[in-house]
Nucleic acid binder design. Structure first.
Lengths: 116, 116
DNA sequence: GTACTATATATCATGTAACGACATATCAAA
DNA sequence: TTTGATATGTCGTTACATGATATATAGTAC
């Protein structure tokens, strides 16, 4: 497992949004799901299968970490599990953003060359 | 098969670059491969398997079309096959660029909120 | 008191796409 | 004559998304 953020790129769209959702601070799975929906302008609707398998993968890769037992305001539903970005996770997210900016820059150049 | 470009998104990185490579005009497969490598700053090295399976898929989806027998300056290698963007392909590429811009915008907002 | 809805977790089967490895062919230069 | 650049393609494996399905809890409406 590399510590070079570049080696984790490109991120898939769900993965990108999950990490971005955690950028401001810790969240539990279901909160991530709702946040991503809003954050993406109702465009990305994570299914629970996508969400929880991605969380498992990101934990394995140490891009996020599980926060041990935030003794939380229990609302309805099963007990919440909170996650946060690791340093590596944040660096991956930043590297991915730079990658995306490069793609947009090149696209804007080529799409302007012919009359768009 | 939809004519709504949004329904083809998100594109994978190889697919995005293949379409972008065709934006200025027709190319054959091997030329696309070299162009993508340069265009991406030596970052994306398409394997021939990725390239030709993607071309097959894009033909099926009618995002690109095969140009029939450009009687071409035959150089070395097997006979070239030329491809070009369809109108739909161009619209998909534009829609994808807009999607990427949205992701970058949101990422820049959230990554600035905490001190990046 | 009971059914419904939102909250919250998770797995399974299937489909799609990337990718390394492999295969084939042509021409030019060393 | 053999190497390297050009040029096309398939096969097996792996990774990931996704719809369907399952389980559990708390509040609300009837």
């Amino acid at each position: 497992m590399s510590t070079d953020p570049i080696s984790y790129l490109p991120l898939t769209e769900p993965t990108f949004y999950i990490l971005l959702s955690l950028a401001p601070g810790k969240k539990h799975g279901y909160a991530i799901m709702k946040d991503v929906r809003e954050l993406s302008g109702e465009r990305v609707h994570l299914s629970t299968s996508t969400l929880y398998t991605a969380i498992g993968r990101l934990l394995d890769q140490e891009l996020i970490e599980r926060l041990s037992d935030e003794k939380q305001d229990a609302g309805p539903g099963l007990p919440r599990k909170f996650y946060a970005l690791t340093d590596l996770g944040r660096r991956v997210l930043e590297a991915e953003t730079i990658r995306l900016e490069g793609m947009v820059r090149e696209a804007r150049l080529r799409l302007r060359e012919d009359g768009v």
